[in-house]
Each structure stands twice: as structure tokens, then as C-alpha cells.
């Protein structure tokens, strides 16, 4: 059995898997397709339900990997072939243009998710209208201070863009948008108290420790206006946006002038998730998320022995759960590392 492990993906799940293995004296090859670690958390201004700044937390995580002599980070790299079996995998990696061969005992897949581009939702005008952005773009606006210009403005947050929609999007719920939209509204009210935040929702899914209280605080302490109903369209009106929607509690149409519209776009599998599944020989679900060996009892085992799963490559997850899965996957893979 090889003593080395391969971790695919240097996001928050992959980082934690790699560190956990290194702490157990195992050698780790961490393959990251981009030029930096951190994955989707790089685009995050703050965490929830505790409003901590995300970047210092992430830097702390990154340094655990970067300073670790047991971990060999390969940037701009991709796995191109895998053969052999648990305990003795032979792997080829394209490292910045060069093919390198490695032998590893276990593989942890932590490739994360992608924010859907809501181009099919032309009713919201994304990429056609200025000031219609995705939640990922909004996080960057918070970080670089762009949201400060929305003083005395109306900012509208739209839930479920691409989630829970079997016609144009995905049937599943992206799970964390309810809470991160509350976070977005809250950040707005903190940075720009004169701005008005409106959230259009179907129902509120606060599925985590402290989430319900967090959303309630946004409503009760910060005056974020929650309107139950779907937005039907966003159109240009002179210099602003006109948001047309329904208030399904009152049963009336709603029209709102907005200066910024933020779309909570669905979290989807990485575009190449099925290709990687083919290379690894593991199963995916219909969407392209990786399938667990048993959905309740084996959440970090893939369908193939010796290959483990961590983070949002299995389903939309929050940071906390991705971290836990990373550590669990590391622990389970120890038995395949000599």
C-alpha cells in the first residue's frame, strides 16, 4: 500500500482533508485546477450564522496546507487518468502542462460546486441589464466596497433562481441560499444603513444551527423586508430597475423600483464533474453530483473502494459541513494508506 493520498480540489473541504491526513503523518498530493487555494470561499465576504469575515478564516486554513511539508500542492493541475485499486492507485496528473505519474493509496474528491449562470432566466435580465448580479458577484461587491454606493437605494434579493425549478433549472433546493441571502441583506444594512433590503422568497429553509435565529434577526433587528412571492420580471425603467412580483400572502401584484437586484443562483455541480467521475470510475447522480456508497450510513464513501467524497461535489453544502466531510473522508481513507 502506498503511503500517499491524493486530494482533488483545494477548496475548504480539500484543505481540511489534506491537513488531517498530514497530521497523521501521511503524504498528500493536493491537486488544484486554479492557481490558488480556497475555491468558492475566495468569493465570500462573510460567513453565517456568525458574521465573521471569511477571508482571514480562509487564510488561516490555507496556511495550514501551504506550510505543511507533508503536502505537495500542484496548482493549475488536473487528474487525467486513474488505474489500479484501493491501496494501490496509479494516477496521472497534468501539472501545469506536464504529465506526472504518482502512486497513491486513497483518493479524496473535493471538487466543489459552481454557481449557475442564470442566463436562461432572461425574465430577470441577468447579463442584459446593469445592476442585476448573482449572489457570488454581490459578495465581491461587499468585499471591494461597491455596495457603499447604494445609500438610500432599494436592493432586491431573489431566492431560488435555478433551484426548485424543474423547467429551466434544477429540481433540488440549493439549501443555503435562504440563509446567505439574509446574510447579504444584513451586510447591506450594516454597511449602508440607509439602504432598503427586500427579499422575495417561496418559503424560508433555515436548515442549520442558528440559521432560523439569524434570518429572524435580519427581519426584526435590521428591518429587512421579506415578501413571499416570486419575481416575474425585472425591466429597465429610466435610470433604475422595475421589479414586478407577486405578494402571495396578500394575493396582489407588487411593483418595486430597485437599484440593484441580486439573484441567488443555484449551486450546480462543476461543469466537468461527469468527466472526472468517468476518469475515477465513480457514480454521479443525474445532476452530476457524486453519489455516496450509502446515502445515510456512508456519506463520504464513493461508489468505488478507496475513493472518498468531501464537500459540495456531493450536494450544495455550507462551509461547516464541507469541513466536517473533509475531515471524515481523511479519517476513512487512513485504512488504505500504508
Amino acid at each position: 500500500m502506498s503511503k500517499k493520498a491524493l486530494v482533488i480540489g483545494g477548496g475548504i473541504a480539500g484543505i481540511n482533508a489534506a491537513v488531517e491526513l498530514a497530521n497523521n503523518d501521511k503524504l498528500v498530493i493536493l491537486v488544484e485546477k486554479n492557481g490558488e487555494l480556497g475555491g468558492n470561499v475566495n468569493d465570500m465576504a462573510a460567513t453565517f450564522p456568525e458574521l465573521d469575515e471569511a477571508q482571514p478564516l480562509l487564510d488561516e486554513q490555507k496556511s495550514k496546507v501551504e506550510d505543511n511539508e507533508n503536502i505537495d500542492i500542484k496548482f493549475n493541475s488536473e487528474v487525467i487518468s486513474v488505474s489500479g485499486k484501493a491501496g494501490d492507485f496509479k494516477v496521472e496528473i497534468n501539472e501545469d502542462g506536464n504529465t506526472v505519474a504518482e502512486e497513491v493509496g486513497a483518493i479524496i474528491v473535493a471538487t466543489g460546486f459552481n454557481y449557475m449562470e442564470p442566463n436562461d432566466y432572461s425574465e430577470y435580465g441577468y447579463s442584459r441589464l446593469d445592476n442585476v448580479v448573482t449572489s457570488q458577484e454581490y459578495e465581491r461587491m461587499v468585499m471591494n466596497g461597491d455596495i457603499k454606493k447604494y445609500s438610500n437605494s432599494n436592493v432586491v434579493f431573489v431566492h431560488c433562481v435555478g433551484s426548485r425549478d424543474r423547467v429551466k433549472g434544477y429540481r433540488y433546493c440549493s439549501k443555503i441560499c435562504c440563509t446567505y441571502s439574509a446574510k447579504h441583506a444584513l451586510l447591506l444594512k450594516q454597511e449602508v444603513p440607509s439602504a432598503n433590503a427586500f427579499v422575495f422568497y417561496i418559503d424560508i429553509r433555515a436548515l442549520g444551527k442558528g440559521y432560523e435565529e439569524f434570518i429572524r434577526d435580519a427581519i426584526e433587528d435590521y428591518g429587512v423586508r421579506y415578501i413571499r412571492g416570486r419575481v416575474s420580471k425585472v425591466i429597465n425603467k429610466e435610470d433604475t430597475l422595475l421589479v414586478k412580483a407577486e405578494n402571495s400572502l396578500i394575493g396582489n401584484p407588487v411593483e418595486l423600483n430597485a437599484d440593484l437586484v441580486v439573484l441567488a443562483s443555484a449551486m450546480e455541480p462543476q461543469k466537468d464533474s461527469k468527466e472526472l467521475a468517468e476518469i475515477l470510475g465513480i457514480e454521479t447522480d443525474d445532476y452530476g453530483f457524486y453519489k455516496e456508497a450509502q446515502s445515510n450510513m456512508e456519506p463520504v464513501k464513493s461508489s468505488k473502494e478507496g475513493i472518498f467524497l468531501a464537500g459540495s461535489c456531493t450536494a450544495p453544502l455550507e462551509i461547516r459541513e464541507s469541513v466536517a466531510m473533509g475531515k471524515a473522508a481523511a479519517s476513512e481513507s487512513l485504512s488504505f494508506l500504508g
Binding site: E117, S122, Q136
Partner: peptide
């Protein structure tokens, strides 16, 4: 995230 190449929806 890249924006649409063209604005026309044809």
C-alpha cells in the same frame, strides 16, 4: 463568471 457573448436572444 462570464457574461453573455451577445445580447440578442435569437
Amino acid at each position: 463568471m462570464h457574461k453573455l457573448d451577445k445580447l440578442s436572444g435569437i
